[in-house]
Write a protein that binds this DNA or RNA. Structure first.
Lengths: 226, 226
DNA sequence: CAGAACATTATTGTATACTAGAAAATGGGG
DNA sequence: CCCCATTTTCTAGTATACAATAATGTTCTG
């Protein structure tokens, strides 16, 4: 085992947060987590510090660490930045893509379509993330890829609700097709424009998000301080 | 004292790194820092974990924590992302700026020019950072502002390289003037174009080249500090 | 019964002690 | 003199003990 327990705990907590097991606003109790992972509080605390630094959790001095509960305006801001990073990635990807890249992306997109047509929401959701991750990588800028992935993960609990809105999955699929075609044709502007629309939450999707947000906030803020 | 020692140590280390007191690749010894700050290793370790998470330091399991020493290609990638965030900020700022914002920005820019004309390089750097920070804030997106500031700080030790490559401070000053005028005129495209040129080290085609080079080389040489 | 002051409890923050693994030192053989 | 194996030492990682403070409960007073 080359990886440190504290690092594994940090990653485990990140995953449990983005997958929704640890809901928005939930208190991350040090003693409880120590027992859960079978270690002392020390590595748990270090994991929590890192989560807080990454923005996934929020640390209140002498009060505890909580899964980040961004306000609606903060959420809108984060999606605005996310859109910009996605546009940058697809812009660079369109310019720098190799044929192998495009083939791989086409394959992922087909798998995505299969999940969509089979009505497998969970699988579509996973494959959708894969497509986006591939585009990040195709940008040829690994720092951008890492930052985009980080923000993507952080927004994941909120994006999931967005995708569950009726009809959104099909729209999303269509947009993927357009983006893929634009990359293949080297049509940078079309790729960017479609991507921005794909990510941006304002407009009709804005209300979808708001309802989802309120839904989330209603459930798990029982022990969240204010 | 409402702020925790661990948080203050983290911020102190960040400042000492971006100001160059703790040089690139320097080992951050836990015992040494404990003595320096008059605390035990525990809060020091927590501070180091956070620095590593933010990217300013790099943590090697059972070997120690070091001030991040990014490779040249990683630096190019980070500057490429920085350029995009700056462009986004100036795009939003141009659309959303109030007259008071523009006045304040003009004032900062004049102070910057004074330092430039006085040949006060250190002060020019500081005021230059202020101008950029003001533009981040003017974007009206506080999340973007925070992320831009974070990356700006992280790149601060390397920004002198940028000036060396580009030549003289005067060019940078001219670009500031053009950007400010574009914001005042509401000329979004001009503001963006100038800003991208202002930030990017050698231009996008150079970045494309580096990207392609990394593809060829497999980007696997990640040598570690001594 | 309401509310405030006090005592109690629980949890975070820090210090110290201990463990383990990697770098450095040592020493023997070529 | 150099190379490699062994030992030693040093530092990072973790556990535990303790201190400090916020949250909670209780009791006394009006």
């Amino acid at each position: 085992m080359t990886r440190l327990p504290s690092a594994k705990i940090r990653d485990s907590l990140e995953q449990r947060i983005v997958e929704g097991e640890l809901g928005i606003g939930k208190r991350l109790d040090e003693a409880e987590l120590s027992a859960h992972y079978g270690v002392s509080r020390t590595p748990v605390r270090e994991a929590l510090q890192r989560l807080a630094e990454s923005g996934l959790a929020e640390h209140l001095p002498r009060r505890g660490t909580f899964v980040s509960a961004p306000s609606l305006s903060e959420l809108v801001e984060m999606f605005e930045v996310m859109a910009e990073l996605e546009c940058m990635a697809v812009r660079l990807a369109t310019r720098r893509a190799t044929n192998a890249d495009i083939d791989a992306l086409t394959e992922s997109n087909e798998a995505c379509r299969a999940a969509f047509e089979a009505g497998d929401t969970k699988r579509y959701y996973e494959l959708n993330a894969t497509v986006h991750r591939q585009i990040y990588k195709m940008s040829g800028n690994s720092f951008l890829a890492a930052e985009a992935q980080r923000l993507h993960d952080r927004l994941r609990p909120f994006r999931r609700l967005q995708l569950r809105v009726r009809g959104r999955m099909g729209e999303s699929m269509d947009e993927h097709n357009i983006i893929l075609a634009a990359i293949r044709d080297g049509d940078v502007q079309k790729a960017i424009d479609t991507m921005r629309n794909h990510i941006t939450i304002l407009g009709e999707r804005f209300n979808d998000l708001v309802s989802g947000f309120n839904l989330l906030m209603g459930q798990n803020n029982k022990d969240k301080p204010s």
